[in-house]
């Protein structure tokens, strides 16, 4: 079977983009290789590291495991779309202030994941460490670590990442 090409339309960081893609293309490769949006990073390409995390219609997902063709007309926010002009997103500022990174490769995924995670907590979603499944969420350090466990940092900058998120969360 020959490669199959399809038309896909995506709204990326506020900009409507239209492209013709091989059906095999992941959202991550569409963003990085075709649209030049290199904020989302390719770490493992298997959904195990979280470096490719983006917000897909407002929810955090691994863009390496999402086929672009399956998300035609989707609204995508990457780390590049979080700032308001020169004003950084509060989480971006907090990561700088708390030294929430060393090499920085996982950081775009960490920050997008944290944005999605805070929305989930605000909606009252419990986590695996929540003692009471129906109580309001209190984002303790243990809650933040559990909810961010899909984002690995091989430099081990967690000691900065958790407080960076906690400051914005509380």
């Amino acid at each position: 079977m020959d490669a199959v090409e399809v038309e896909v339309s995506l709204r990326v960081d506020g900009r409507q983009r239209r492209l013709t893609l091989d059906t095999r293309t992941s959202l991550l490769d569409a963003l990085r290789e075709r649209l030049g949006v290199t904020g989302p990073k390719k770490g493992c390409d298997h959904g195990q590291c979280g470096a490719c995390t983006i917000l897909l219609d407002g929810r955090r997902v691994n863009s390496c495991l999402a086929l672009a063709v399956a998300h035609d007309e989707a609204e995508i926010t990457t780390v590049e779309g979080l700032a308001d002009g020169d004003t950084l997103h509060p989480l971006q500022e907090s990561f700088v202030r708390h030294d929430g990174f060393q090499c920085g490769y996982c950081t775009p995924g960490q920050i997008c994941s944290a944005v999605g995670m805070l929305t989930e907590a605000e909606a009252g979603w419990p986590s695996a460490v929540s003692a009471d499944l129906t109580a309001p969420v209190e984002l303790t350090d243990a809650e933040i670590s559990e909810r961010m466990s899909g984002n690995l940092c091989r430099c081990g900058a967690y000691a900065g990442i958790v407080p960076a998120i906690a400051e914005v969360a509380r």
Partner: peptide, 26 residues
């Protein structure tokens, strides 16, 4: 996250929340 599931079937909510990551569950 569903209210009915959390209230009636905590075992199911706990199992789901212990699986994969926030991104994958989405």
């Amino acid at each position: 996250a569903d209210r009915l599931v959390r209230e009636r079937y905590p075992v199911l909510a706990q199992a789901l929340l212990s699986g994969a990551s926030g991104q994958l569950r989405n």
